[in-house]
Measured scan of single mutants.
Amino acid sequence: MIINNLKLIREKKKISQSELAALLEVSRQTINGIEKNKYNPSLQLALKIAYYLNTPLEDIFQ
């Protein structure tokens, strides 16, 4: 099972779900679904998340 630290990292960087969704060009519901482990992001989306949060991919999804 993948450990998902997206919410923790996003909140630590003081970025809202809506702000991150806008940067990634996805819906806020997509971010919410990823954070609640209801949706697994594509590799492309996971890499974009890591880029915009300036955090290694391995720290977000373990």
Rank of each mutant, 00 (worst) to 15 (best):
M1T: 11
M1A: 09
M1K: 10
M1P: 13
M1H: 11
M1S: 11
M1F: 13
I2T: 13
I2G: 11
I2F: 11
I2E: 07
I2A: 11
I3D: 08
I3N: 11
I3Y: 10
I3L: 11
I3G: 13
I3P: 10
I3T: 13
I3M: 12
N4M: 05
N4K: 04
N4G: 04
N4D: 02
N4S: 05
N4W: 05
N4Q: 04
N4I: 05
N4A: 04
N4H: 05
N5A: 06
N5T: 06
N5M: 06
N5L: 05
N5C: 10
N5P: 03
N5Q: 09
N5S: 07
L6P: 00
L6D: 01
L6R: 00
L6Y: 00
L6F: 02
L6Q: 02
L6S: 01
L6H: 00
L6C: 05
K7V: 05
K7A: 12
K7P: 03
K7E: 07
K7I: 05
L8C: 15
L8Y: 12
L8H: 11
L8E: 15
L8N: 14
L8T: 14
L8V: 14
I9E: 05
I9A: 07
I9Q: 04
I9H: 06
R10T: 01
R10G: 01
R10K: 02
R10F: 05
R10Y: 04
E11S: 07
E11I: 10
E11F: 06
E11R: 09
E11M: 12
E11T: 12
K12C: 10
K12I: 10
K12F: 09
K12M: 13
K12G: 09
K12Y: 09
K12R: 13
K12E: 13
K12L: 12
K12V: 07
K13W: 08
K13T: 06
K13P: 01
K13V: 05
K13H: 09
K13S: 07
K13C: 11
K13Q: 10
K14A: 10
K14Y: 07
K14C: 11
K14D: 08
K14G: 15
I15E: 00
I15N: 01
I15W: 06
I15C: 07
I15K: 04
I15G: 02
I15H: 03
I15P: 01
I15D: 00
I15T: 05
S16F: 03
S16I: 03
S16P: 05
S16D: 04
Q17N: 03
Q17T: 08
Q17V: 13
Q17S: 06
Q17A: 08
Q17Y: 03
S18K: 12
S18C: 11
S18E: 14
S18Q: 12
E19K: 14
E19P: 02
E19V: 07
L20A: 00
L20I: 04
L20S: 00
L20E: 00
L20D: 00
A21K: 01
A21F: 03
A21E: 02
A22M: 13
A22V: 10
A22G: 09
A22Q: 13
L23W: 13
L23I: 08
L23V: 12
L23P: 00
L23C: 09
L23R: 08
L23E: 07
L23D: 05
L23A: 15
L24N: 00
L24V: 15
L24A: 09
L24W: 02
L24T: 12
E25P: 04
E25M: 13
E25A: 12
E25H: 14
E25D: 12
V26R: 01
V26C: 08
V26Q: 03
V26L: 04
V26M: 03
S27R: 07
S27L: 04
S27W: 03
S27I: 03
S27H: 06
S27A: 05
S27Y: 03
S27T: 11
R28K: 15
R28G: 08
R28V: 15
R28S: 12
R28L: 15
R28N: 08
R28T: 15
Q29G: 11
Q29Y: 09
Q29R: 14
Q29H: 14
Q29W: 12
Q29K: 13
T30P: 02
T30W: 09
T30N: 03
T30V: 15
T30D: 05
T30F: 13
T30H: 08
T30G: 01
T30Q: 07
T30K: 06
I31F: 03
I31P: 00
I31W: 01
I31L: 15
I31V: 13
I31Q: 00
I31E: 01
I31A: 00
N32K: 15
N32P: 01
N32H: 10
N32S: 12
N32A: 15
G33E: 15
G33W: 13
G33P: 01
G33T: 09
G33D: 15
G33Q: 15
I34T: 01
I34A: 01
I34E: 00
I34L: 08
I34F: 05
I34C: 02
I34G: 02
E35V: 02
E35G: 01
E35M: 03
E35A: 01
E35H: 03
E35I: 03
E35L: 04
E35T: 03
E35F: 02
K36F: 06
K36E: 15
K36A: 14
K36Y: 07
K36D: 14
K36N: 15
K36G: 09
K36I: 09
K36W: 06
N37G: 15
N37T: 08
N37P: 01
N37C: 14
N37K: 09
N37V: 04
N37M: 13
N37D: 06
K38V: 12
K38D: 10
K38F: 14
K38G: 06
K38T: 13
K38W: 14
K38Y: 13
Y39Q: 09
Y39R: 09
Y39K: 10
Y39W: 11
Y39S: 09
Y39D: 05
Y39G: 04
Y39I: 15
Y39L: 14
Y39P: 01
N40W: 10
N40A: 15
N40Q: 15
P41N: 00
P41V: 08
P41I: 08
P41F: 07
S42T: 11
L43T: 12
L43E: 09
L43C: 15
L43Q: 11
L43R: 14
L43V: 10
L43H: 14
L43S: 08
L43I: 12
L43K: 13
L43M: 13
Q44I: 09
Q44V: 10
Q44N: 13
Q44S: 12
Q44M: 08
Q44C: 14
Q44W: 10
Q44F: 10
L45S: 00
L45C: 06
L45T: 05
L45N: 02
L45D: 03
L45E: 03
L45F: 07
L45W: 02
A46T: 06
A46I: 07
A46S: 08
A46M: 15
A46L: 08
L47V: 12
L47H: 09
L47P: 00
L47S: 08
L47N: 12
L47A: 10
L47D: 05
K48D: 04
K48W: 05
K48A: 09
K48G: 06
K48M: 08
K48Y: 04
K48R: 10
I49G: 00
I49P: 00
I49R: 00
I49N: 00
I49S: 00
I49Q: 00
I49H: 00
I49W: 03
I49E: 00
A50L: 04
A50V: 06
A50T: 03
A50I: 02
Y51Q: 11
Y51C: 10
Y51F: 12
Y51D: 07
Y51V: 07
Y52W: 10
Y52L: 11
Y52R: 04
Y52E: 05
Y52V: 15
L53G: 00
L53F: 07
L53V: 04
L53T: 03
L53P: 01
N54E: 14
N54M: 08
N54R: 08
N54A: 13
T55Y: 05
T55R: 04
T55W: 05
T55G: 02
T55F: 04
T55M: 07
P56D: 07
P56Q: 06
P56A: 12
P56V: 03
L57C: 08
L57E: 04
L57K: 04
L57R: 04
E58M: 08
E58D: 10
E58S: 11
E58L: 10
E58R: 14
E58V: 08
E58C: 11
E58A: 09
D59K: 10
D59L: 11
D59S: 12
D59V: 11
D59R: 07
D59M: 12
D59E: 13
D59H: 09
D59A: 10
D59Y: 08
I60A: 01
I60L: 10
I60C: 03
I60P: 02
F61K: 02
F61C: 04
Q62G: 14
Q62N: 11
Q62D: 09
Q62H: 10
Q62Y: 12
Q62R: 09
Q62V: 14
Q62T: 11
Q62I: 11
